[in-house]
Simulated assay, not measured.
Amino acid sequence: MSVTSDSEIGTARIHQEEILEAAALCFMERGYNASSIDDVARRLGSTKGRIYHHYRSKADLFADVYRYGMELNAAAIKPLCGAYDDPVEKLKAMAKVHCLTMLRTRPFQRCVWEGVSLLMRGATTPEQRETLVELQGLRESYAIRFREVIEDARESGKTDFESSGIATQIFLMALNSPIFWYSPRDTDDDEQLNEIASRCTRFALQGLGIGKEYLQDV
């Protein structure tokens, strides 16, 4: 009986992540319906067989791109969730890191958004819909983590809004917005991305009624 080594598992995962990155770029540029496994293979510089070794269909590949995008989001904010006593400071940190993740992993985040759109339009097979409903659950669980901190911030008296549900949706829409209007340039570096994220974060926090005196270090 053959035993798969840790190095072989690691190599397989690297290969799979390369496929996901190529697929995310294709789906972002062409959209789900107009993209094909052939397109992904060409971008990857490989055969279709390499992709079909991991994924039986384009729908399965798209679902994994969506899932990976949400995993990137969750991993980015995880270290911050227990790192602050002040809910406003926690919210500031989570918001900034979330927006930076949108900028740095934009192709994956655009696929997440397209997955939401496909589900809302009902433009899916029953099997695809079941998968997208499951993935939407990951997205909603992620949003709840922000909603809880937003509600804690209101309890601290440093915010001013009515519905926490509406506030959370609008807050995240502001932070997500760079995936639609940001166009990467060769000259962009971490400092420039940090500045874009800071501006978006300050705007979103002010929308919750957080005063400018709390935003100087964002």
Rank of each mutant, 00 (worst) to 15 (best):
R56F: 06
E17K: 13
L132F: 02
A76C: 07
L208I: 04
K48H: 03
E127W: 00
K92R: 12
T124L: 15
K58F: 11
Y66L: 10
L172C: 10
T11P: 00
F62Y: 15
I14V: 14
K90G: 11
I150A: 05
E21V: 12
I14A: 09
V3M: 09
S117W: 08
D85Y: 11
H98Y: 14
E130H: 09
R56Q: 14
S141V: 05
L100W: 02
P87D: 11
S57I: 01
D38M: 11
T4C: 12
T11D: 12
D64V: 08
G209Q: 09
E155L: 15
E213L: 09
V116E: 09
T201E: 05
D152A: 13
R13Q: 12
A143Y: 00
A204E: 06
T124G: 05
Y182G: 13
R199P: 05
C81T: 13
I144N: 08
S163F: 01
M120T: 08
P107Q: 05
E151D: 09
D190S: 14
T101E: 03
L91P: 01
G209T: 07
L193Q: 08
A204R: 05
R106F: 07
D85S: 15
G165L: 13
I196Q: 01
R139T: 00
I166C: 06
L215F: 02
L132Y: 03
I144S: 10
L44A: 02
L20N: 06
K78P: 02
I37C: 08
D60V: 03
R13P: 03
V97Y: 04
H53G: 06
R110H: 05
E17W: 01
E127K: 10
K158C: 13
E127I: 03
I19N: 07
R129W: 03
D152L: 15
M120G: 07
V65K: 04
L119W: 02
M94Q: 07
E140Y: 05
D39H: 13
P79Y: 04
P126A: 03
N33T: 12
T125V: 08
D217C: 04
I170E: 06
L61M: 06
G157P: 11
E213T: 12
R56L: 06
E17A: 13
A12Y: 06
S7E: 13
C81W: 07
S156R: 05
L118G: 03
I19Y: 03
E148L: 12
S183M: 10
E162T: 15
L132P: 09
C111H: 02
E89A: 12
V133H: 01
S177E: 14
M28L: 14
R104M: 12
P87Q: 09
E213N: 15
N194C: 11
K96G: 00
I77R: 04
I210R: 02
T159A: 14
C200E: 13
E71V: 07
A34W: 06
I14L: 13
F146K: 09
E151Y: 00
T124I: 02
F108M: 15
P126G: 00
P107N: 07
A174P: 00
S5G: 04
S2C: 05
A74Y: 01
T125M: 06
L44E: 10
F62Q: 04
K158P: 00
T131H: 08
L91T: 00
L132V: 02
L91W: 01
G45T: 05
T187L: 09
E29W: 01
